[in-house]
Simulated assay, not measured.
Amino acid sequence: MNPVQNKKTRFIDIGLKDYQQAWDYQASLFEQILATKTANRDLPADAQQATDNYLVFCEHPHVFTLGKSGHEENLIIPKEELADVQATYYRVNRGGDITYHGPGQIVGYPVIDLENFFTDIHRYMRFMEEAVIQTLREYKIEAGRSPGQTGVWLDPDDAHRARKICALGVRTSRWVAMHGFAFNVNPDLRYFGYIVPCGIQDKAVTSLEKELGRKVDLEEVKQILKEKIRVQFDMEWL
């Protein structure tokens, strides 16, 4: 663990942001934390600096992203037709396969030093899922996990009804995490038809809007989700 453990976390909502711009932003935060850890190596324990933690929320214009373990054939729409649907495509260095981001979806990038909390990737993923599960419960929707598959699901135990409402993907280096989750609140679900979401052939995708039958206040959901994440990780907001 860090000699100086710091659970203070800065919450930043950058709004609707181009995927590359958001990528560059979270990468800069990620590299900043790594630089602090590198500098600390050469310092005695009582002189080391605490590392920072960030929780970044945003939305993206229509974009498909493929993780490093993903398969490009899961992008069903031909690349030359992406412009026709106002979408872009990126290969990225997170785990997982292909996913979609777009307006009406909360994309969360927790750029945190896990040594400030706990050094367990599995636990990190489960805590993020739990924050979304608890958020959905505020809307009287019971969600859970699907064995062997990351993310948050509705009716995960029913093969015919199981549907995914939140995808997760993470990358860590020296216990610093980046990437995160994509929570479907009011997105245009038609875009999931252009991919095999997360490489899973036989499961549907849903949204809070679809389940409730009405548009949901995105800002309201953000505030609930932000608090659920804080509780899960015992964070302190800066």
Rank of each mutant, 00 (worst) to 15 (best):
G180M: 04
F127T: 10
G102E: 10
G213S: 14
A143C: 08
E138M: 13
G102N: 07
V221Q: 08
A167S: 15
T88R: 07
A143K: 13
M178E: 01
Y89H: 09
N93F: 06
V221G: 03
R91L: 09
K222Q: 13
R126Q: 10
V176D: 01
R171G: 12
A143S: 15
V107P: 00
Q86S: 11
A159R: 10
R174E: 12
A177G: 01
L189T: 04
V107C: 08
Y139N: 11
Y100S: 13
Q105N: 05
A87I: 15
L168D: 03
S146W: 07
G96M: 08
A204V: 03
A182F: 08
P197M: 10
L136W: 08
V196Y: 07
D217V: 03
K222A: 05
R171S: 14
I112N: 00
F117L: 07
V132A: 14
T88N: 12
F181C: 06
V152Q: 05
D158C: 04
F117D: 01
T119M: 11
D202I: 03
A131C: 06
R91D: 13
G180L: 09
E227D: 13
D97L: 09
V196P: 03
F117V: 05
A204T: 07
G169K: 10
Q201T: 09
R174M: 05
A87E: 11
I224N: 12
G102P: 02
R174S: 10
L208G: 15
K226D: 01
R137G: 06
F192R: 12
T119Y: 02
E227W: 00
H179G: 02
W175I: 00
M178N: 07
T206L: 04
T119P: 01
K164P: 04
G144W: 04
K140F: 03
R174Y: 06
G193C: 09
K222Y: 04
V92L: 06
K226F: 00
Y194D: 15
M125Q: 12
D157S: 10
G104P: 04
H179M: 11
I106R: 12
R123E: 13
I141E: 12
E209W: 02
C198S: 10
R171F: 06
I195S: 11
S207Q: 11
F181G: 00
V205M: 15
G213N: 11
I133R: 15
D158S: 05
Q86E: 14
P187F: 03
K222T: 11
K215P: 04
D113N: 03
D97T: 08
G169Q: 13
I165C: 14
G144R: 08
E220A: 04
Y124I: 00
T135H: 12
P147C: 08
I133V: 13
R163M: 06
N186D: 15
